[in-house]
Amino acid sequence: MTASDLISFARGAPSLDIIDVEGLKAATDAALTEDPGGALGYGTAIGYPKLRKLLADRHGVAEEQVLVTNGSMQADAFLFDQLVVSGEPVVVERPTYDRTLLGLRERGAVVTPVSLATDGIDVDELAAALDGGLRPTFAHVIPNFQNPAGYTLSLAKRQRLLELAEQHDFIIFEDDPYVSIRFAGEPLPTMLELDGGKGRVVYASSFSKTVAPGVRIGYLVGPADLIAKVRVRATNTYISPNMFAQAVIYQFAASGGLDRSVAKVNAALAERVATLCSALEKHLPEAKFTAPEGGYFMWVELPEGVDVAQLLTAAEERGVTFVKGTDFLLEGGRSSLRMAYSGVRDDQIEEGVSRLADALKSLGVAAG
C-alpha cells in the first residue's frame, strides 16, 4: 500500500479540492499590482497595515489592539511567553489541543485541566476549583468547534466564564481559529465581544482554516498595552511576519473572496460530517460521538478496553489513520480518538471508517 492509498482522519487541514486556488491567484496579482512595495518589503512586526485595520474593524477595536503573526500558533507562543509564569497554574480544557499542552509545559506552567462537556468547559468545576484557592494566570479556551472534541461553548457558559475571570482576576485566552467554519446552528458572540472592552479577554484566530494552511497567518486581539509587549517579542523574533502572504489575504478578503471561500468550505464540511456520522453508525455502532456544528474535528469514544495505540497500528496497516485521544490529555483518553474530516474527500469517508472497523475487529474487542 502506497502513501497515496492512505485515508487520513489525522490532519486538521482543508483538502485541496475546497481551497479557492483561482481566487488566491487573483488576489496575488492584485497585491503585486496595487501595493508591490508593501507586499515585498520587510514591514514591521504589526503585520500588513491594511490587513491589521481590516481585522480591527471586524472586531470593533482600535488598530493598536491587533497584531498579525505567522500563524495562530506563533500568536499563541508569543502570548504564552508573555503571560506564563513558571510554577503558576494555567487552566485548559480536558481534552485540549496537544500543541497547547506542549507549549505551556515547556514554559513551566502548572497545567490545570477542567472537564469538557458537549456545551464547553465545565464552569461549575472551574468555579469550585477557584473557590478552593486555584489562582490561574489565564484560562485557555477554544470556544467554537473545539480541537480535538468539536464541541462549542454555550452562551451561558461564555457569560459565566467572564464572570469568573472578573471575580478571580484572571485572563481568558479565547483561541478561536474555527469560528467561521460553522455549517449548522446559530453563531454565538465571542467572549471578546461580551467582555465589552474590559480587557479580560485576549483573542486569537487564523486564516489557515478558512483559506489555506500554507498562508500561515494568525492574529491576536487584546488590550493595547499587552499587544505592545507582544509586538516587542515579535520584533525581536523576526522583525516582521510574512508581508507578502498578508497582502494577498488582505486582497482576498477585500474582494469578497474570503466570504466565498468560507461558504465553499462550510458546504463541503457539512456533507463530510453527515457522511462520517452515517458511516460510524453503520460500521462502528459501538462508537459514541456528538456531531459538530462546525470546525474540522469530531471526538469518538470506543468501548472500554480498546487501546487506541494498538488500534492505530492496526488501522495504519489497513490504510487509515487518526490521532489518539491520549495525545490531547495529560492522563486518560485510552479508548478515544480524534477524527478530522476536513482533509478527507466525501467519497473516501465510508471506506476509511470501514477500514477502521476492520482494525477494531482485529483486536478482538466486543461491540459495546
Rank of each mutant, 00 (worst) to 15 (best):
M1Y: 15
D5Y: 08
L6R: 11
S8Y: 06
A10K: 03
G12P: 05
D17Y: 09
I18A: 02
D20K: 12
D20Q: 09
A26H: 11
T28P: 02
D35A: 08
Y42C: 11
T44F: 10
T44P: 02
A45K: 05
I46W: 09
I46A: 10
L54P: 01
L54W: 12
R58K: 05
H59S: 00
H59P: 07
A62Y: 10
E63D: 13
V68E: 01
T69Q: 00
V84A: 07
E88A: 13
V90Y: 12
E93Y: 01
V110C: 10
S115M: 11
G120R: 03
E125R: 06
A127T: 02
G133T: 02
A139G: 04
G150A: 01
Y151E: 04
L155W: 11
A156L: 13
E163C: 14
E163S: 15
L164W: 04
L164G: 08
L164D: 00
Q167P: 05
I171S: 05
S180Y: 09
R182G: 00
G197L: 03
S205T: 10
G214S: 14
A228L: 06
K229L: 02
V232H: 10
V232E: 12
I239E: 14
S240C: 09
M243F: 07
A245Y: 00
A245W: 03
Q251F: 01
Q251S: 07
F252E: 00
A253C: 00
L269W: 15
L269M: 13
R272W: 05
T275S: 06
S278W: 07
A279K: 04
K282S: 08
E286P: 01
K288W: 14
F289E: 04
T290N: 09
G295H: 03
Y296R: 11
D307L: 06
V308E: 11
L311K: 03
G319M: 12
F322Y: 14
V323G: 06
L337R: 07
A340K: 13
Y341S: 11
S342D: 13
D346W: 05
Q348S: 10
V353G: 01
R355I: 01
D358V: 09
A359P: 04
L363C: 01
